[in-house]
Write a protein that binds this DNA or RNA. Structure first.
Lengths: 251, 251
DNA sequence: CGTCTAATTGAAGCATCTCAACATGCGTGG
DNA sequence: CCACGCATGTTGAGATGCTTCAATTAGACG
């Protein structure tokens, strides 16, 4: 059988879904023929705005994005971090009005896929329907972990946990750089994700470096002691529900 | 057409789903014929344990429950609060291993429904499949709001927000007591839900009473100033995605 | 009426925040 | 290619919101 090579966006999506469940050749074909429209979004710009009623889902192809909410004080809470292959506004398929915004953390390439195309695909394929549903549940699981992270852990663990999660997910997507990752977040943004002031994030980063858990050069962070960082950050990757083969193991 | 009157558990489930989407008579019949097994769980006892691989979903029929996670320090984070009609371990349908626990906040009556029965029902009915999916997404939306609540708001807002959410949801289920609700949580548990110490919850409760937002007698809390409490707590019910008619409006 | 849990209050400590200044790096245009 | 300007990172010092510990009171339940 002849299959045309999928676009970068399609490949990312397939890789992402394969990190959580097995796909058949047929599933991959279905995914690879999804129609889309490409857009480029500059750093800090919105991809989807809170309150919108989207008719397409956005797929991150390159770059990084975050979900966020604004609160009364004018501060922003980052709700989750998204890498290539993610569909941050997938909830819009079942919740007409967006209750959060999606913003680019770096210059980002986005593919917009019509709701109708996704709906049609999920109606045809039981297995893809299941995989998408699983993806949605894993999203919820990550939120749960963040609630526990922000609610109960101290500053160093909170920040360490964010690094552990990012490393594990990027590794599962084949987007890690050996023992390093490129986390497209400023210290201020890490603060918005963990409920901390930027100043305190800075101090905690120094702690993590002094403990030889991490070393940083710009936005590239190298994990020097993966087991130690995981333990110190109370990180257990079970909540990511990845397929066994996809999980990192070194140190 | 003859329809046998549904059990209390079935009624609760139907009412819960009707608070977020319209159901057809056929949907209601499907739901009302779901098989189940009743259990009674004492206060503070687990209904489902973290790490379990459930074969049934638990439906809260009477009482109250919470999802929770333990962290390394031995502290517990409450992740969400569940009222009659809720299915707190619905994720187990798509995520084999539980990444959180479910515990009874009060003496609670639970109905266990086999996964197989739910799966069969969702395969037959497109509309119920959509409603369940919507329910799952609303769950995720509530987690997002909790991340923002715990991450960015001060102690008084955090606690006030929990009351606003509980009141709105119980009202939508027809389980409010006029302007009052019975919240089956101790101050220590409110602390576990908001990332605060029990002592500070107590002080904040006094603040809320002194501001004439709430008055409390035991576990029954009366909302004295609904608009004021919402505004002071930065509460906007949009994230609950309720059907318009279901939302409370007074004061 | 005793027992246990939950709520309440006070006092001291500390994790984290805010404010403010300064350093560094980097993209851009001259 | 260098110089400028802005965003980001760094550091210090003082303020504070919340925690912890500890003791007391009030309620619920048999």
């Amino acid at each position: 059988m002849f299959t045309s090579s999928p676009s970068p966006g399609h490949s990312r999506l397939i890789r992402q879904l394969e990190s959580i469940a097995a796909l058949t050749a047929d599933d991959r074909t279905q995914l690879a023929t999804l129609p889309f429209r490409i857009a480029y979004v500059g750093q800090n710009h919105d991809i989807v705005r809170c309150g919108d009623k989207p008719t397409d889902c956005c797929l991150i192809v390159e770059g990084a994005a975050c979900r966020y909410k604004m609160v009364a004080s004018g501060r922003r809470q980052i709700l989750s971090i998204h890498h290539p292959g993610d569909l941050p506004d997938l909830p819009s398929l079942h919740l007409e009005r967006m209750d959060f915004g999606v913003a680019a953390l770096a210059a980002t390439k986005v593919a917009f896929i019509p709701h109708s195309a996704i709906r049609a695909m999920l109606q045809v394929s039981f297995t893809l329907d299941h995989v998408f549903r699983r993806r949605e549940h894993i999203d919820a699981s990550i939120f749960r972990e963040w609630v526990a992270n922000i609610g109960q852990r101290d500053a160093a663990m909170r920040v360490g946990h964010v690094f552990c999660e990012a490393y594990t997910r990027l590794h599962a997507l084949g987007l890690d750089l050996g023992r390093a990752i490129s986390l497209s977040m400023t210290q201020a943004e890490i603060g918005e994700a963990t409920g901390m002031s930027p100043v305190h994030v800075n101090r905690v980063m120094h702690t993590l470096r002094n403990a030889h858990f991490i070393s940083s050069r710009g936005k590239t962070h190298t994990i020097l002691d993966w087991l130690g960082l995981q333990r110190a950050s109370d990180f257990d990757p079970a909540y990511l529900h990845l397929r066994g083969e996809a999980q990192p193991a070194f140190n």
